[in-house]
Design a binder for these strands. Structure first.
Length: 202
DNA sequence: TGCACGATGAAC
DNA sequence: TTCATCGTGCAC
């Protein structure tokens, strides 16, 4: 195979990034709050246009299922939310406010419409723009609705295990922007790495 | 077929 | 606090 005639880009492996081991299906096929907490510190990897972008997940929110009035699945299975009802380990990407995309990972067994919203990542590799906020991180990592339903065990879009150390100090807070959800708005379902400067709101 | 309303971000 | 901007879900 001949070398590609692409201009000398950047694709040199960054020695600061540990070996990336992709999370398996079983990781996502568990209790949503547990998955949410354990996603913190792991690497979100997106490969597009020959460029690998990596962000360390520092802030997430858990959406527990149809009984959770803040979850999109609370209004039942619709064209938009059908991915949430599908098998775990897939991306649920939707457009919000007519202009921003938000990324979720689907959790729990098929039929249980739960997911974890990725709210912020810390830039690790190949990222130029701001990543503190669900819409911003999608823009910075080239994630859009074409990835809705995408399998997160694929080669171009996945989550890989972080270093696992040092131990994370995790904070819990109410979720953002769900005041319409009654008492569910007060549940402590937002998790973030305490003190991390890339968290969108402390 | 029409319309109200966001799991946001940026500006003022 | 206001506003940009448009797909979705549900009312009619």
């Amino acid at each position: 195979m001949r070398p590609r005639s692409k201009p000398a880009a950047e694709p040199v492996p960054d020695s600061a990034v540990p070996l990336l081991k992709r999370l398996d299906r079983e990781f996502y096929d568990r209790d949503t709050q547990l998955v949410a907490r354990e996603l913190l510190g792991n690497y979100l990897v997106r490969v597009s246009g020959g460029v690998e972008r990596i962000g360390r997940i520092v802030e997430v929110e858990a959406y527990l299922g149809p009984h959770d009035l803040a979850a999109h699945s609370a209004r039942g299975r619709t064209e938009r939310t059908k991915i949430m009802f599908g098998p775990p380990g897939h991306a649920y990407v939707y457009l919000i406010y007519g202009m921003h995309c938000c990324l979720n990972v689907v959790t729990e067994p098929e039929g249980q419409a739960a997911a974890v919203l990725i709210r912020a990542v810390e830039p690790i590799k190949g990222i130029e723009d701001k990543t503190s906020g669900p819409g911003l991180l999608c823009r910075a990592m080239q994630i859009d609705r074409r990835l809705n339903g995408h399998d997160l065990l694929s080669d171009d879009f996945y989550v890989a295990a972080g270093p696992g150390h040092p131990p994370l100090r995790i904070a819990r807070r109410p979720r953002i922007g769900v005041d319409y959800a009654g008492h569910w708005a007060r549940r402590l379902l937002r998790f973030y790495i305490r003190g991390n400067p890339f968290v969108s709101r402390a």
